[in-house]
Amino acid sequence: MDLSALRVEEVQNVINAMQKILECPICLELIKEPVSTKCDHIFCKFCMLKLLNQKKGPSQCPLCKNDITKRSLQESTRFSQLVEELLKIICAFQLDTGLE
């Protein structure tokens, strides 16, 4: 393996790690329209609304089981920016390397 191939692999590993961190624990995809709970867990807005609409009253956070309500959800613009920038990095990496 030459040096450039090694560096490509390192970049790919970093991108994969970042994708894992920014993954919704419910749908296991890159978070879309991130919302945070009072317990500071981040999920896709759609995933949380789907969870909350399944029953009346408070639901439980899928990660820590604390009570959550629609009102307690906060849009997470910082995470939204992180996801947007990661998508740009992924696109640039794919253009530069031809890898997916």
Rank of each mutant, 00 (worst) to 15 (best):
Q81P: 02
S59P: 10
E100Q: 09
E100D: 14
L6F: 09
L82H: 02
N66H: 12
Q81E: 05
P25L: 03
K50I: 04
R71S: 15
L51H: 04
V83I: 09
L52P: 07
K56R: 11
K88P: 13
V14D: 02
E85A: 10
I26M: 05
E9P: 09
C91S: 09
G98A: 03
Q54H: 13
I26T: 08
E33Q: 10
R78K: 05
F43L: 09
R71P: 15
E75D: 07
D40H: 09
K55P: 13
R71W: 13
E10V: 07
T97P: 01
K32P: 02
M48T: 07
P58T: 09
E10A: 10
V11P: 02
E84G: 15
S76T: 04
K55T: 11
P25A: 07
F46L: 15
R7H: 08
C27S: 01
L87M: 06
C47S: 00
E23V: 14
D67E: 14
D2A: 11
K50T: 05
K45Q: 14
D96Y: 00
I31P: 11
K20T: 13
G57P: 06
L28V: 07
P34L: 02
K56T: 09
N53T: 07
L95I: 03
D96G: 00
Q94E: 07
V83G: 10
M18V: 03
K50N: 11
K55Q: 06
F46C: 07
L51I: 12
H41Y: 01
K70N: 14
G98V: 04
P25T: 09
N66P: 02
I26A: 09
F79I: 02
A5P: 10
V14L: 13
I89F: 14
E100K: 09
E10P: 04
N16P: 01
I90L: 10
C47Y: 01
K32N: 09
V11G: 03
I90P: 14
F93L: 03
E85K: 03
F93P: 01
I26L: 15
C44W: 02
K65R: 00
S36A: 11
E33D: 14
D2G: 06
E100G: 15
F93I: 08
K38P: 07
N66Y: 12
L52I: 11
E85P: 03
L73V: 10
F46Y: 13
L49V: 09
T77R: 13
G57W: 13
S4F: 03
Q74L: 06
I89S: 08
C44P: 01
R78S: 04
V11I: 15
A5D: 13
I89L: 12
I15P: 01
D40A: 10
L28Q: 14
L82R: 00
K20R: 11
L95R: 11
A5S: 12
N53H: 15
F46V: 13
I15S: 00
K65P: 09
M48P: 03
P34R: 04
C61Y: 02
L95H: 15
E85G: 04
C91H: 13
L3P: 12
E84Q: 12
E84V: 02
H41P: 00
S80R: 05
C44S: 00
S36Y: 05
E29V: 10
T37K: 01
T69N: 14
F93Y: 06
E9G: 05
E9K: 08
I26P: 00
K55R: 14
S80P: 03
G98C: 08
C64R: 00
E84D: 05
V35I: 12
A5T: 13
C91Y: 09
C24W: 00
K50R: 09
L52R: 07
T37R: 02
H41Q: 02
L51F: 02
K38R: 10
C47F: 01
T69S: 06
D40P: 05
C61R: 00
L86R: 00
C27Y: 00
C47R: 00
K70P: 08
E10K: 08
Q19E: 14
V83A: 08
I42R: 13
Q74P: 14
I31N: 08
A5V: 10
N16Y: 04
V35F: 09
L87P: 03
S76P: 02
L22P: 01
A17G: 15
H41N: 02
V83F: 03
E75V: 03
I42V: 08
S59T: 12
C47W: 02
F79Y: 12
T97I: 04
T69I: 08
D2H: 07
C61P: 01
L49Q: 15
L28R: 15
G98S: 04
L52H: 08
S4P: 11
M18T: 01
Q60L: 11
K88R: 08
N66K: 06
L49P: 07
H41D: 06
N13T: 06
F46P: 05
K45N: 14
D67N: 05
V8F: 06
S72R: 07
Q12P: 03
P62R: 11
N53Y: 03
F79C: 04
L30V: 13
Q60R: 12
N66S: 05
L63V: 05
K45T: 14
